[in-house]
Design a protein around this nucleic acid. Structure first.
Lengths: 406, 406
DNA sequence: CAAATATGTTAATTCACTTGACATTATTTG
DNA sequence: CAAATAATGTCAAGTGAATTAACATATTTG
């Protein structure tokens, strides 16, 4: 009960139903009526009227038009978009993506900026702050109007301390008080999470896995990681490093991985591996349009993906090979977790079925029938924004429930 | 507590704290005082006094001596052992184990009987009923005194329908209403679960993983399965087939498995594989005491384990080989789940470090440092009884909470 | 033995929720 | 088109689980 993305203040057990109502309203697509709330929470209509009254008075919720049939039309309830604005900050290994949303999680504006995470927090975090300060005013928003923010980083988040633990691809970030630093700079509550974890949250709330009970989000970026949402709750494991699918050993004597082992999924199917295999192919003289781009050692994963999309057969085969490896690891995940849906995100996922078909095929071949029959394997709908949108869900959770507290 | 959407609380929000108190009393080793309850639930002493008053009046709880120091001694609370008796029924592939316990989950008596699960439910379940009817009276208990029972079977349990889904090793059991059949015969509420799931519950409640937040129980029997307890809750997955670690593919062109695939963990390290490899060794003329037992094709896993225990080097090596394969699969589990503890149960686990050391070594080698550093790998303390004791926990949960409901 | 400390109980109060009646607004029917 | 029917939403009185604040009880310490 202790380790969760955001801790509900203890006293809120008292207002349990108020918070339950708030979340049902938040995540009901197109709003929800009082009577539907009463059915789902298991309270009487009278009680719901009272709870909703509080929420409306607090300006968290508003009434909209609803329609039905058979009797009086229900009044639809939705989050009041003007209750406040929050930021979702997705720090990747090469870029930072920041979205500004209103109470309904509608994106008001978005900004992207390059970033080199290997430079450590002392360089990167001020850069992020600078981007925000230079951009926010143009969106018609003062920093002081921001109610909360959530940030994710591509490494395991250790406990609720607001720091990261030994992150393979984040040298220098160990034990730096990321959350506290940002809270001071932004002047609002900040929540720190893992990119895959927030990706899962984003796709669950607004994407491919909307409302599913058990969801795994696989982020195939420079590295490969998974975010798990089990029984409707983010699952982070004992030390916050659950979902590290990237370091499952697939090939005993395979290529060396950043983690030091050999044959990890990440070393076989991650973005780094994709670029590496492309370079090897070029140096072996394989026919590919990539050769025209520039020197082989300047090729990065993005180039391979773009070429595959343009129809380059060599690059497509590299992606398919990644798919088979991903499928093998996902088959293990499906056997162990038995999820409703596996959402594939990250750059390579833009290629759709080119990547998904080999994954689906391998999963079907290597996992139990009951499990693969129950699972859907889809690409992320939110694309590059999965994690930032998950961050936004988290940030809104903080503000909404904090205000509802009173 | 909650991460994203509010989990709609179980039966009643109303008596939520009463149930919380009941569970804290149940699983506190050696009892718990009112003040400790108030600290853990977050209620005032006055409220706890009232709740406990109800529980004592319902004869579910009793006061015992406690001792402390510094002030007035607290009064210890524990479940009233005489509140009633329940049965835990563990149906394995070759045996059935039944335990009778009192309210404190103390074993009053136990019975074992052979059973061939491949004969289907129409043969097996009447056998189980017959065993119970022939044995219970000798324990000084009438069948009508039994408040509840829980049964586990070695296959995935589909939903709460009280049936099993396509079970690889349980031909003929599909869709048979196991729970309903037993409820009618025993005349009490019955809960149906999976053997590994109940094993996890048993080891969590009374065994090696007492009170841990994230536990995986690996049952190495004829087959290999895992029971998962995540964030303090049994995790079953979407169709009830979570934890099917036995059918993770480890060796691409490995030996064929009962599930139809090749190179599954179960086909490399399960009991069936252990026996098979022993027979092969004998036929190749390897030096082993097993050869003296009888014809090679009559050798079963139990014989190999016994020989390994006696010091037979060939058999010990077979067990060690199993350990490496188990370790490989468990490394994946540790990467994905990041548990506090992995408990190894089933027949082979009796061999202790002979099996555990290769597992530990492989896990250390093949999983992320943050994850393997956090995980403890131990043998099941409850041994053969892990699952039956988990069943008992489940059965007691049913009766206790049902009575507390009023 | 009084003081200090901690646990447990009691009575008055608070407040979320239920109950049951009523108000409101739509569709269906004679 | 009024009346019947149906569904949603609200109100006022009552219930009960919790809090607050005082007191009672048991054990150690100066």
């Amino acid at each position: 009960m202790a380790t969760t993305v955001w801790q509900i203040p203890k006293a809120s057990v008292k207002n349990l139903n108020k918070h339950a109502a708030l979340d049902l309203i938040r995540f009901a697509p197109g709003g929800i009526s009082r009577i539907e709330l009463s059915r789902q929470i298991g309270l009487t209509r009278a009680a719901v009227t009272s709870i909703v009254g509080d929420l409306i008075e607090a300006r968290l919720v508003r009434e909209t038009n609803g329609q039905h049939g058979g009797g009086r039309n229900p009044i639809n309830l939705e989050i009041n978009p003007d209750f406040g604005r929050v930021l979702g900050i997705d720090i990747g290994s090469t870029h930072v993506t920041i979205v500004l949303v209103n109470g309904l999680a509608q994106v008001l504006d978005e900004v992207n900026a390059p970033l080199d995470i290997t430079q450590g927090p002392e360089i990167c975090l001020p850069q992020v702050a600078k981007v925000i300060n230079g951009w926010l005013p143009n969106t018609g928003t003062e920093l002081s109007e921001i109610l909360a923010a959530a940030v994710d980083v591509p490494g395991p988040v250790v406990s609720d301390a607001g720091k990261v633990g030994a992150p393979p691809i984040m040298p220098g970030w160990d034990n730096f008080p990321i959350r506290d630093w940002l809270e001071e700079r932004l002047g609002c509550p900040v929540s720190l999470g893992n990119d895959a974890e927030f990706g899962a949250l984003g796709e669950w709330a607004f994407g491919a896995g909307r409302g599913e009970k058990n969801l795994a989000y696989i982020k195939v970026g420079t590295g490969v990681g998974a975010g798990l949402l089990l029984d409707g709750q983010i699952y982070r494991g004992t030390t916050g490093s659950a979902g590290e699918i990237g370091h499952i050993t697939l090939v005993e004597d395979g290529p060396i991985c950043t983690c030091g082992n050999h044959g990890c999924l990440e070393a076989l199917a991650g973005g780094r591996s994709l670029a590496l295999r492309a370079r090897e192919g070029i140096s072996k003289g394989r026919r590919t349009s990539l050769a025209e781009i520039g020197p082989a050692n300047s090729i990065i994963a993005k180039d391979v993906i773009a070429a595959a999309r343009r129809g380059d057969l060599f690059c497509q085969q590299l992606v398919i090979d990644s798919g088979y490896h991903l499928g093998t690891a996902i088959a293990s995940l499906v056997n162990l977790i038995n999820p409703d849906i596996v959402v594939i995100g990250g750059g390579v996922a833009q290629l759709g079925d080119l990547l998904l078909d080999p994954i689906r095929q391998t999963v079907k071949q290597r996992s139990l029938k009951v499990s693969w029959q129950a699972v859907r394997i889809s690409a992320a709908i939110l694309g590059r924004r999965s994690s930032a949108m998950g961050a936004v869900v988290q940030a809104l959770s903080m503000s909404l429930h904090q205000i509802a507290q009173v």
